[in-house]
Design a protein around this nucleic acid. Structure first.
Lengths: 176, 176
DNA sequence: CTCTCCATGTAACTGGTTACATGATTGG
DNA sequence: CCAATCATGTAACCAGTTACATGGAGAG
């Protein structure tokens, strides 16, 4: 299970609350890791209990306390251990392809419409990634160096989305 | 969710036992849908109870009964309804990219080794897909027509794996 | 005044994995 | 003889989603 480790990664550089983490997930790991706020709050509680994080409560007026979590030494150790041990090849379960496979059962326009809807989402993601890429490429050498690995994950996103869109073209050609 | 629907797809053309389905998953939906035998047996039981499938028990000597499941009318309806209603864009949770993102915490050879391991698996998958593609391309026009949609899902696999391997090259260039 | 964002959480449920369990047959 | 494959399942656990719940602040 890796939500735990993803949280450790995001807290490794700076402490943050559950909500902060939610935002960081969207900004930084958005393409390859998703987490809902419910999952995050629960995980933080568990990880705090397990001693991977420590929590500082900041009282707020008219709001629930702001709980800022910080990685502990034990948390840092756990993170390194995880990075160093091999990960399984992640296998997808893609419902769209199951539909595609059985598409002969319905009118082909239904499948085509579905593809076009998904295409919009993938095109939008690609655009976001390309904007981020440009930002990176315009950085000064020094700043660039610090973002090299995140940039490689961005490249994964770009190549993945481009492949998706190339595939969509093949599908459209066949279905129209 | 969709394991249910994937099973309906696989039983739509011909009945089969849990073990038959396990094999069909591997052969036909392998790239985009994974299911363990435990999941399948459980689902079949539930779907039988829900009236989507009917089960015929074939007694066997020295073995548990062979339970052959067949899609019912209600199951067929459920399948069509599912295909016709929009699917969410599937979002990946890829632990390898989380590691990559935080790769600065460890020696870069650790990340490189991990990439090389994963690359082997992706290369093997691509080879399998390319073999299947060739098989399809050598079919006669008539037979080809019947496999057009499954062929498109195969194309997705091919484009996806090629993109993965292209990305791996970029990673290797950076890490060596 | 309503909508969106900020900010936090609990509870029930569904989906999926890991571990356990059994035993025959086939191929090297 | 040993490993793999055939063939079936249960139980405990872990991960993730959906629904529910609350309430302030700022924008239009």
């Amino acid at each position: 299970m890796s939500l735990k480790h993803a949280i450790l990664v995001l807290l490794e550089t700076e402490p943050g609350s559950g909500y902060d983490l939610l935002k960081r997930f969207k900004e930084r790991l958005g393409y390859f890791w998703n987490a809902s706020h419910q999952q995050i709050y629960l995980q933080l509680k568990n990880m705090n209990q397990a001693g991977l994080l420590q929590c500082e409560q900041q009282p707020q007026v008219g709001k629930p306390d702001r709980k800022v979590y910080k990685i502990t030494h034990s948390g840092h150790e756990a993170l390194l251990e995880w990075i160093e041990s091999p990960a399984k090849v992640s296998r997808v379960n893609d419902a769209l392809l199951v539909k595609m496979y059985a598409g002969h059962l319905v009118d082909k326009h239904i499948i085509l419409q579905e593809i076009l809807q998904h295409k919009k989402v993938h095109q939008a993601m690609l655009n976001t990634f390309l904007t981020l890429e440009e930002k990176y490429l315009n950085m000064e050498a020094q700043e660039k160096a610090g973002y090299a690995l995140p940039f490689l994950t961005l490249r994964k996103g770009i190549l993945g989305e481009q492949a998706w869109l190339d595939w969509a073209v093949e599908v459209e050609v066949f279905l129209t």
